[in-house]
């Protein structure tokens, strides 16, 4: 072997060296999860037990609708509503791929028919109507089906006179359904108007990330608005704003904590305390029980306390 050959061989060897993917192979990720914030490697089973919150830095991972309901509801109390509603393709929308194909791909990836799951649960034995958005399906975007399911959920809550909780996580309105998506903002808000007039309680929970049309409709219309720590919530996205005003935005811009300090949410509650906080708020809004305290101005007291 002459020197030339030796160099050629060495070069060939270098080129054919297999580069190992550090974290993305599937079997590895099934066991271990890296925290997006502090980069700590976490054992997935422990993470799940900790409600998908990093034990080291308290980073709240995005979670799916199913897990949310599991964390919130009394065991086996969830009854799904309108599970069979599916998206149509009213515009015949095609960009780089047809919308119909994108829908199928999204469902295959997420295992969901649409980006919101609605139903009824009990929370500490109190019946509640609950809607949970799943960012994992089509970026949690709101098209006709999401609008319809949310509107039906609100109407169901109104009919049963139970409190309503909606957990939002969405990139905004679904462009592929054009103007009909935009109209879902109006539809859900109109349903909430009727709900509102009945004097019923609606708690909106904002989770990472909630943007666009969802923020500009039902997500911001809660009687009480709760955000998860670190969740990014806004109308326009950070990048769009930076490009428009051509200046850097504060690092914590549009985070839950930023929203709290700007008076946009009532509280920031970590996932571990969410269930008990909700339970407490809902219990409180049942109002005063007329028995222990008799109203000071007598006679018509029952009317005041009846709600």
């Amino acid at each position: 072997m002459d020197l030339k050959e030796w160099f050629a061989n060495r070069k060939k060897k270098q080129e054919s060296v297999e580069v190992k993917q550090p974290l993305s192979t599937e079997e590895y990720c099934a066991l271990w999860t890296q925290c997006h914030l502090c980069r700590e490697l976490l054992y997935t089973r422990d993470l799940r037990q900790n409600l998908h919150v990093c034990p080291k830095c308290q980073y709240h991972f995005r979670i799916g609708a199913e897990q949310r309901i599991e964390q919130l509801a009394d065991p086996d109390s969830f009854v799904e509503l309108d599970a069979n509603l599916a998206s149509a393709d009213p515009l015949g929308f095609v960009d780089s791929e047809p919308y119909a194909k994108r829908l199928k791909d999204a469902s295959r990836k997420s295992g969901l028919r649409e980006s919101v799951v609605t139903g009824t649960i009990t929370l500490n034995q109190t019946p509640i109507a609950v809607g949970v958005m799943d960012f994992g399906h089509f970026g949690g975007s709101m098209g006709s089906v999401v609008g319809e399911k949310v509107a039906r959920l609100i109407e169901e809550a109104q009919k049963r006179r139970v409190p309503l909780i909606i957990i939002s996580s969405s990139g905004g309105a679904r462009m592929q359904e054009g103007i009909l998506s935009l109209m879902q903002l109006a539809k859900t808000s109109a349903a909430l108007q009727a709900f509102h007039e009945e004097g019923l309680l609606y708690i909106s929970i904002l989770t990472e990330p909630t943007y666009g049309g969802v923020t500009a409709s039902f997500a911001m219309l809660g009687d009480i608005i709760i955000a998860e720590p670190g969740a990014r919530v806004g109308f326009a996205g950070r990048r769009v704003i930076e490009q428009t005003i051509r200046q850097k935005l504060p690092a914590d811009f549009q985070t839950a904590e930023y929203l709290l300090s700007h008076g946009q949410v009532d509280m920031v509650v970590e996932r571990a305390r969410l269930r008990e906080t909700l339970s407490q708020i809902i219990e409180f809004h049942k109002g005063n029980n007329p028995t222990p305290l008799s109203p000071s101005n007598g006679k018509k007291g029952e009317a005041i306390y009846s709600r």
Binding site: L185, A186, S189, A190, L192, Q193, H196, T215, A216, S217, F218, A219, M220, L221, G234, F235, A236, G237, V240, I241, T244, I245, Q247, L249, F253, Q254, H262, G263, Q264
Partner: peptide, 22 residues
């Protein structure tokens, strides 16, 4: 709606949502 710092700080999403409802 205007994608700006002031607009987000003053909660334009809420301003729009409340208008829809009202």
């Amino acid at each position: 709606a205007y994608p700006g710092l002031h607009a987000e700080e003053h909660n334009q999403a809420e301003a729009i949502a409340v208008n829809l409802r009202e």
